[in-house]
């Protein structure tokens, strides 16, 4: 029994880590631009898709291939913000929410449709065999451990970026007080584009793990976006690290319920989502 629990915890932490990674990216984006980015899930899907294509062509370790994708997705996110999001920023409140929903949703639908046309609607997955690790009576897949390691490294990298570099601190300043940051000389518009780039990298990285551990189709984007948005709301829209916590909680919940009552895992996850929001309207760490 104990080994099952440990296995579940590892799987849950990994799954939670994937959620946390993408959610963190989305939290950064929301914190800076105040925009509900429904297209985030599409970048995850594209990250998985591109690494699949690269893997099929080269057969290299997909986690290493993902490093190639980093600059690509930074650029994609950057351009997406410049072209579609920045024009919206002058709107206020109610109008901004409507506009950001329309634009990011429309983009998501377009991306989904075009992708399924060119690459087909079937499931794609990467099976990359790596030797398993034996620990006592447990057998742990080393690709999972490696994946977990990558996620932790990525998160730490972003965290250091936010804490130690000028841009990172400018980014944090913008999430706390946009006006104030502008007065301090921060080019908040450029920060917005950079943040979108970073957030998109994280989403695409999550997508790479997705295609290794599960499978992807062109249609996972929008449901995932909804899930991620709910995670960052659950974690607290004002808090960047709340989404990490939210993602982990969700992943572990899904893993545990997935084992004991498979059909109910996603339902349980959403229940928790809604429940947390209702108990703490500002989110876990908001």
């Amino acid at each position: 029994m104990a080994s099952i629990i440990v296995q579940l915890l590892i799987i849950g932490t990994l799954q939670g880590g994937i959620y946390a990674l993408a959610a963190f990216g989305l939290a950064l984006i929301f914190g800076v631009s105040n925009v509900l980015n429904l297209a985030h899930g599409q970048f995850l899907m594209l990250g998985g898709l591109f690494s699949y294509i690269l893997f099929m062509a080269t057969k290299w370790n997909p986690l290493l291939l993902s490093l190639i994708l980093i600059p690509l997705f930074f650029g994609l996110g950057f351009l997406f913000e410049r072209g579609l999001v920045r024009p919206l920023l002058e709107r206020k409140g109610h109008e901004l929410v409507i506009a950001s929903i329309l634009v990011t949703l429309g983009a998501s639908l377009a991306i989904e449709d075009i992708t399924s046309f060119f690459w087909g609607p079937e499931e794609k997955g990467i099976s990359y065999m790596m030797p398993s690790i034996q620990m006592g009576s447990m057998v742990i897949s080393s690709i999972r451990l490696l994946g977990l390691l990558f996620i932790v490294l990525l998160t730490v990298a972003v965290h250091l970026f936010l804490k130690k570099t000028y841009t990172g601190r400018a980014l944090r300043a913008t999430t706390q007080n946009r006006q104030g940051a502008m007065l301090m000389g921060v080019n908040t518009f450029r920060i917005g584009s950079i943040t979108f780039g970073i957030g998109t990298i994280l989403a695409s990285a999550a997508g790479v793990f997705y295609v290794i551990l599960f499978t992807i189709t062109p249609f996972i984007g929008i449901p995932l976006s909804i899930k991620y948005l709910c995670i960052i709301v659950m974690g607290g829209l004002g808090s960047l690290y709340g989404s990490l916590l939210g993602g982990l909680i969700l992943g572990i919940t899904e893993a545990i319920t997935g084992y004991f009552a498979p059909h109910w895992s996603e339902t349980a996850a959403f229940f928790i989502l809604v429940a947390i929001l209702l108990i703490r309207p500002k989110g876990l760490l908001g």
Partner: peptide, 27 residues
């Protein structure tokens, strides 16, 4: 519970609600 949320929070929580119902209907 839901009207204690504002703006984006409200929209997302309600969006999550649909997914919850779809899953409930499944299960």
């Amino acid at each position: 519970p839901f009207f204690r949320l504002r703006g984006a929070y409200f929209s997302l929580a309600t969006f999550g609600l649909i997914r919850l119902f779809e899953l409930l209907a499944f299960n």
